[in-house]
């Protein structure tokens, strides 16, 4: 029973980590709170519904295509709408709200308000030390781990990843060292949207797909980044796993609404004790 709870928590938590990483990345680098982050999750899921569900592409090809298309959309938004607002928190936030409701209405106009389910590419369950694990969730978890490792390697090892870290730490010094901030913004926005839409794309067969499915994962991403510390990558990982575990522990006994309220109360307590989050930098 406890093992089952832990496994469910990790399975859920890994998805939250992927969502929260992109969100925290955009904030860390551009100082923009991206309220449209959930809509890129939705875009990923909708694209999988189209490519896999209707056109019959292989599932993973559809997931990859959904990710690439959403990343391109994200980079376009960044270049046209967000570039001018880097560092201006309030206008940046309102702009992201605008992008969010535009994407939501477009999805609503194109697909209608009803939530649709798509055929599951993976069925059945397997057992791990007596705990029952559904295959589709396992695929999401493995996908998330692959995405996280790839992201970590990119951030630590590649020139671009190091450039992104430099801009996040100190934009002016980074540009003095020859790091072109513009391309870093564009890349980090694209990567963040890629992460969100991959999460949505992987989750599409697990839940239903509709124009409003992005808001709950976004709310969870908010909770995770506040818990872990805004702008902190290890914080997002820790926060995501903690949220997943606490949710699975509470949701099985009290229901998901109570679990969400409880996680919010925990976040408030964390803020009282450690204002910058569990792993946040001071004053970040």
């Amino acid at each position: 029973m406890i093992l089952q709870m832990i496994i469910n928590g990790v399975l859920g938590g890994l998805m939250y980590v992927v969502m929260a990483l992109g969100f925290t990345l955009i904030f860390g680098i551009m100082r923009i709170v991206n309220f449209a982050h959930g809509e890129f999750y939705m875009a990923g899921a909708v694209l999988v519904m189209l490519l896999f569900g209707q056109f019959g592409w292989p599932f993973f090809v559809a997931v990859a295509a959904a990710g690439v298309l959403s990343a391109a959309l994200g980079m376009l938004c960044e270049r046209l709408l967000f570039r001018k607002l880097v560092g201006e928190e309030l206008p940046g936030m309102i702009m992201s709200l605008a992008v969010s409701i535009i994407l939501q209405s477009l999805a609503l106009l194109a697909f209608g308000p009803a939530e649709q389910s798509i055929a599951r590419p993976f069925d059945g369950t397997w057992t791990l030390f007596g705990a029952i694990v559904p295959w589709d969730r396992t695929v999401v978890a493995i996908g998330s781990v692959v995405i996280l490792l790839a992201f970590y390697a990119f951030l630590r090892l590649s020139r671009y990843g190091i450039a992104m870290q430099a801009v996040a730490q100190d934009r002016e010094t980074a540009s003095l060292m020859g790091v072109e901030a513009g391309s870093v913004y564009s890349m980090s926005f694209g990567i963040a949207c890629l992460l969100a839409s991959l999460a949505g794309a992987l989750m599409a067969p697990v839940y239903t797909v509709g124009p409003y499915i992005g808001s709950l994962p976004m709310l969870k991403a908010f909770v995770v980044v506040i818990l872990g510390g805004l702008g902190s990558v290890p914080g997002a990982v820790l926060g995501g796993l903690l949220l997943g575990l606490s949710e699975s522990a509470l949701a099985t006994t009290f229901g998901s609404t109570i679990a969400l309220i409880a996680s919010f109360i925990v976040v408030l307590c964390v803020i009282i004790v450690r204002p910058s989050g569990l792993m946040g930098r001071k004053g970040a």
């Binding site: 709408l81 702009m95 605008a98 992008v99 969010s100 409701i101 939501q104 209405s105 106009l109």
Partner: peptide, 12 residues
Amino acid sequence: QYQFLVYGFCLV
């Protein structure tokens, strides 16, 4: 739904 589309473009 159109209203929110209009809102979005107004905000932008």
